[in-house]
Design a protein around this nucleic acid. Structure first.
Lengths: 240, 240
DNA sequence: CGTGTTATTGATAGATCTCAAAGATGGTGG
DNA sequence: CCACCATCTTTGAGATCTATCAATAACACG
């Protein structure tokens, strides 16, 4: 693997899984890592493939997807800089549960299953950190499950976008822009609906001035209004 | 806490989280544990309460539920003997994400957050085991999310029942019985539908001889037929 | 035997998917 | 620089699933 990028010691600074590690620990972790470049559209790993590596994204954006036996695709989550991915399988020891695809050109640090295992052996803190992250993901997934079970489409879309705003929102003139290309189809696969319904819903919101739309582009003009929809607050009920 | 039951060393034998521990380790774990009796309907902990303990169920059956801000309840999972619960929060350090309620009279072993932390410190294997379990739960939850997003109600109910059969099915004369009281409402809260739709669906299945129904009782007569519905396979001949 | 819970069943309305077609958009190559 | 093409998006109409409303029935328990 070409080390086209330097292994700067600060790379692991904000990475949760290596939090609390001393200097020698981080150096050792960095020395065991290799760079992996992922051009937009390229895959870090695929569903059901043997889980042989664990990654931390440094630059870019990935989406993790699963396909059903019927061939329908759903988006499990988006991964941003400093987030880890491919962790579940390496810990559990089986195959990757999903496919990780770069949405824009990205750079990730990778560790083989063996080297991350050795590191965790020497630094138990790593296992505890990983556990904390997995706990967070489990909670997050349960929240989405709860939304799917109890909420109508419009609220689910609002929640999905709110999540993206928190994770990948960039303040720009006039609102908050989702910082990577995002199609109506992507939103549909995140929220369990169809691109048609997403398109209709977003068009209605645009007419109300809540969002501004473009091709694979989404800007939230009025985050408060979005929250009102997501939480189904009675705020601006025209009547009753 | 009354130790109404003995602390038999074999209690931890089949408990995943303590797998691979040597004899002194298990003894130490057992000595730090306390018994907790849960009468049917009683709660081990409640949603948003501070997470101060971690449990392993020894006898009985629990359900973990969450309520939405609107007051709608969903069932996150059922817990059977030798399964751990309350782990997420203790690891992550926050509040319990759901409420654990005994469905039938139950006995659990409990550890305070402090004592389980000390144990994990001394026996890193515990953290690894917990991580493996959480990985499994995450995968399971993602599978349910995928089902909710891509499947119609009938298939979701079939999947839900299949999961219960695997977890709590008891072979009896004429089929496999779900081993605890389970109402139509419970099934609805597991699969994201209403008790009405569950009732209609089950009635139809009963007419086909797939299941046999009773008050809070469900027996699967034809597991294969159920699998056919769950996987949406082409309807096959009875003698296939 | 009354009472509360649980379950069944019918009718209806509404949300959302499906099918269909046309309209934008941005990149590419001539 | 422009035309063309693949993709992405919008919008309409109809079909369908499922929730909701409503009423009754079955069951368990004291």
């Amino acid at each position: 693997m070409t080390n086209a990028r330097q292994l700067d010691p600060s790379l692991l600074d904000a990475v949760d899984v290596f939090a609390g590690l001393d200097k020698p620990g981080r150096d050792r972790a960095l020395n065991a890592a290799h760079w992996r470049k992922l051009a937009a559209g390229e895959r870090a790993f695929e569903q059901d493939q043997e889980a042989d590596a664990f990654f931390v994204l440094e630059v870019g954006r990935l989406k993790v997807t699963q396909v059903t036996p019927e061939g329908q695709e759903i988006i499990v989550r988006y991964i941003g800089p400093k987030e880890m991915f491919g962790c579940v399988a390496v810990c559990g020891g089986l195959a990757y549960p999903g496919t990780a695809t770069a949405v824009i050109d990205s750079w990730a640090l990778g560790w083989t299953r063996r080297s991350i295992g050795e590191l965790a052996q020497s630094y138990p803190q790593i296992a505890l950190n990983a556990m904390r992250t997995m706990g967070g993901r489990l909670k997050d997934t349960q929240a989405r499950l709860r939304e799917m079970q109890t909420e109508r489409v419009e609220r689910r879309i609002a929640h999905g976008i709110a999540r993206l705003v928190a994770q990948a929102g960039r303040r720009v003139e006039g609102g908050i822009l989702i910082d990577f290309p995002l199609s109506r189809q992507d939103l549909a696969e995140m929220t369990g609906t169809t691109l048609h319904t997403v398109s209709r819903t977003l068009s209605a919101w645009q007419a109300l001035g809540v969002v501004e739309l473009g091709r694979q582009k989404l800007m939230v003009r009025d985050p408060h209004a979005l929250a009102v929809i997501a939480e189904d607050l009675p705020a601006s009920r025209p009547e009753d």
